[in-house]
Design a protein around this nucleic acid. Structure first.
Length: 199
DNA sequence: GGAGCGATGTCCT
DNA sequence: GGACATCGCTCCG
């Protein structure tokens, strides 16, 4: 069993495309009702700040997106389309508003609990448990109320990211999904060939 | 397996 | 008032 270490704040203090790429293969770990829910990150997207029309931070700092302008390594959770949450991790030094959207996980631990949180049949495929940003949040029980603004570099937060030494063999780079503005920029990163990548 | 579409709350103009 | 970093269902091939 290889040693697992929690990613430190320095890991996130870089441009979002670099962090998005580096997060592939890491483990997103959530403590939930005394159990551990965890999955390997297989898909991410990078969002910049004032120079990225697709980013929430593009129009400047507001009450909703304030976390993005703070220090790196904090969760930015927002509510979208009236029913879904999306989880981002802030990056770049304080004052710069980059972030990484976590889009899909390969479930690793706590699969029965994640299946239940998703409302799926217990013995079905695990492919759809966390393949998409809304599904990922539902599978881990992540909401804006419970997780926006928490520090993901602390083991006490109940949500953090670990490195167990595993590295993805091949990374595919494509345009980002579901956006209208700046839709051509290649800022989506995925583990090539993974069944757990969305759409 | 893919296109079309409705559901639904929050934020900013 | 409109847009929205989505999902799951239908209908069609």
């Amino acid at each position: 069993m290889p040693r697992r270490t929690i990613l430190s704040r320095a890991f996130y203090e870089h441009p979002p495309d670099a962090v998005a790429r580096a997060l592939l293969g890491k483990l997103l770990v959530r403590r939930f009702e005394r159990r551990i829910l965890a999955g390997r990150i297989v898909e991410t997207e990078a969002y910049f700040g004032l120079d990225d029309p697709a980013a929430h931070a593009f129009a400047g700092k507001t009450k909703r997106n304030a976390v993005l302008f703070g220090p790196p390594g904090f969760a930015y959770v927002y509510f979208i389309y009236g029913m879904h949450f999306c989880l981002n991790i802030s990056c770049e030094p304080e004052g710069q508003a980059g972030c990484v959207l976590l889009r899909a996980l390969e479930p690793v631990e706590g699969i029965a609990a994640m299946t239940q949180l998703r409302g799926l049949a217990q013995h079905g495929s695990s492919r759809l448990i966390a393949s998409g940003p809304g599904r990922l949040c539902q599978a881990l029980g992540i909401t804006r109320e419970t997780h926006n603004g928490i520090d993901v570099t602390s083991s006490r937060s109940g949500l953090h990211i670990e490195d167990d030494g595993w590295l993805p063999p091949e990374i595919a780079v494509t345009p980002r999904v579901g956006i209208r503005k700046a839709a051509e920029r290649p800022l989506r990163f995925a583990m090539a060939g993974s069944r757990f990548v969305s759409r």
